[in-house]
């Protein structure tokens, strides 16, 4: 079991290395994110910002190094077992499923939803400002609305860590500011640990408690 003396709260990444299959370079990361912190990771394209998030979420396997959350080692856990939920830049929603179904998948992966689950979906939609959009297909939503639905799914999953990978880069400036405000609000209300990757320093400054530059 855990040694209480070594308990470090938050997300700890130490000597995490990864070999980029396309570039052949080895990237290495060291980070410490405190509980309740909203951290933006900034850097030009190609430095491995997204790779870092993929490693934390378990979509890529590291060469070596350790990732812990509240001192629990995540390395051997499957993506679903990690205390993590992700928002990608696009394709977060399954195009053939309605907004409601896409969110419902976050509650039950077989989409077998009880009445109380449907209530939870409604309240999540309400939380992101899309009440009544239950039956819309992704193609009937704007880019911003799609990301809101995806955020709603992140919320119903009730995971303590939220990873955002260039989530609003495809949106125009006003919409982006609005979405950033929403993220900030949800981050505070749900007491999340949030890590956002972006290449826009404005966005980073806008909401982050701390900005980390990767180069």
């Amino acid at each position: 079991m855990l040694n209480m003396a070594n308990l470090t709260p938050g997300l700890q990444i130490s000597h995490l290395s990864f070999k980029h299959t396309k570039l052949g370079e080895v990237l290495e990361f060291d980070l410490q994110i405190n509980p309740g912190e909203l951290v933006a990771i900034l850097g030009p394209s190609g430095v491995g910002k997204s790779t870092l998030l993929n490693l934390i979420a378990g979509f890529d396997a590291p060469l070596s190094g350790v990732i812990t959350f509240n001192s629990q080692d995540l390395s051997s856990l499957a993506p679903a077992e990690r205390p993590i939920t992700s928002l990608f830049q696009e394709h977060n929603l399954f195009a053939h499923l309605t907004a409601e179904e896409n969110i419902g998948l976050g509650i039950n992966p077989g989409l077998r939803l009880s009445n109380s689950d449907h209530v939870a979906v409604d309240s999540a939609l309400n939380d992101v400002g899309l009440s009544g959009f239950n039956k819309r297909l992704p193609s009937e939503l704007s880019g911003g609305q799609r990301q809101r639905v995806a955020l709603a799914r992140c919320l119903v999953r009730r995971r303590p860590v939220l990873l955002l990978d260039e989530p609003f880069s495809a949106l125009d400036q006003t919409l982006r500011k609005e979405m950033l405000k929403l993220v900030k609000r949800l981050h505070c209300e749900h007491k999340l640990l949030t890590l956002m990757v972006t290449h826009l320093s404005d966005d980073a400054d806008e909401i982050a408690d701390r900005v980390i530059h990767l180069s």
Binding site: A57, E81, F94, L105, L111
Partner: peptide, 26 residues
């Protein structure tokens, strides 16, 4: 898109669920 498979992994969808809800509709 590759994000689909990442989502299904994170959402813990089973083999059957993936076929029923994602692959078969496609």
């Amino acid at each position: 898109p590759k994000e689909y498979w990442r989502s299904t992994a994170q959402l813990n969808m089973s083999d059957r669920d993936i076929f029923r809800l994602i692959e078969w509709p496609m």
